[in-house]
Lab assay of single mutants.
Amino acid sequence: NQASVVANQLIPINTALTLVMMRSEVVTPVGIPAKDIPRLVSMQVNRAVPLGTTLMPDMVKGYA
């Protein structure tokens, strides 16, 4: 199973992502692939993302 990107903490709306905010985990449904973590750094979330939430492409500005 492919690992997805999961929030390692509460990420407030419009926050630029950093490595410490994200972890990889095998979850259902599948979200953004963990291999894309380096690409996500500095991108902003367009909503508040609670701890443990799988990041989906529509949550990150400029990803999709």
Rank of each mutant, 00 (worst) to 15 (best):
N1H: 14
N1F: 09
N1S: 15
N1L: 15
N1Q: 15
Q2A: 10
Q2M: 11
A3P: 13
A3R: 04
A3I: 09
S4W: 02
S4K: 01
S4Q: 02
V5W: 02
V5G: 02
V5E: 00
V6M: 07
V6A: 04
V6P: 01
V6C: 05
V6D: 00
A7L: 04
A7F: 02
N8D: 13
N8S: 13
N8T: 14
N8G: 12
N8F: 10
Q9N: 05
Q9A: 11
Q9D: 08
L10W: 10
L10Q: 10
I11M: 06
I11T: 02
P12A: 12
P12W: 12
P12F: 08
P12E: 14
I13E: 14
N14R: 07
N14I: 03
N14V: 03
T15V: 08
T15S: 07
A16L: 10
A16Y: 08
A16F: 11
L17T: 00
L17W: 02
L17Y: 01
L17I: 11
L17M: 12
T18F: 05
T18R: 09
T18K: 06
L19V: 06
L19G: 05
V20P: 05
V20Y: 13
V20F: 14
M21I: 03
M21C: 03
M21V: 04
M21F: 06
M22C: 03
M22Q: 00
M22R: 00
M22N: 00
R23N: 04
R23K: 08
R23F: 03
R23D: 04
R23Q: 04
S24T: 09
S24I: 12
E25P: 01
E25K: 05
E25W: 08
V26R: 03
V26A: 14
V27L: 07
V27E: 02
V27T: 11
V27S: 06
V27G: 03
T28P: 01
T28Q: 09
P29Q: 07
P29A: 05
V30A: 12
V30G: 10
V30S: 12
G31A: 03
G31Y: 01
G31V: 02
G31E: 00
G31D: 01
I32R: 01
P33V: 10
P33W: 11
P33K: 04
K35T: 15
K35V: 15
K35M: 15
K35H: 15
D36E: 10
D36W: 04
D36I: 04
D36A: 05
I37Q: 10
I37P: 00
I37L: 14
I37W: 03
P38T: 09
P38S: 13
P38L: 07
P38I: 09
P38F: 09
R39F: 06
R39C: 15
R39E: 07
L40N: 00
L40I: 13
L40A: 00
L40E: 00
V41A: 04
V41P: 03
V41H: 08
S42Q: 09
S42R: 09
S42A: 14
M43L: 13
M43Y: 09
Q44H: 08
V45A: 06
N46S: 13
N46M: 15
N46R: 13
N46G: 11
N46K: 10
N46I: 14
R47G: 07
R47P: 02
A48W: 06
A48V: 11
A48R: 11
A48F: 11
A48M: 12
V49W: 02
V49D: 02
V49I: 14
V49E: 01
P50S: 12
P50R: 12
L51H: 11
L51C: 13
L51W: 14
G52E: 06
G52C: 08
T53E: 09
T54Y: 02
T54W: 02
L55Y: 01
L55I: 11
L55E: 00
L55A: 00
M56N: 07
M56C: 15
M56L: 12
M56E: 08
P57R: 10
P57L: 06
P57D: 08
D58F: 13
D58M: 13
D58G: 09
M59I: 06
M59C: 12
M59Q: 05
V60F: 06
V60Q: 00
V60C: 03
V60A: 02
V60L: 09
K61Q: 14
K61F: 10
G62D: 10
G62K: 11
G62P: 06
G62L: 14
G62I: 05
G62Q: 09
G62F: 12
G62C: 14
Y63D: 03
Y63P: 03
A64Y: 04
A64N: 13
A64M: 08
A64W: 05
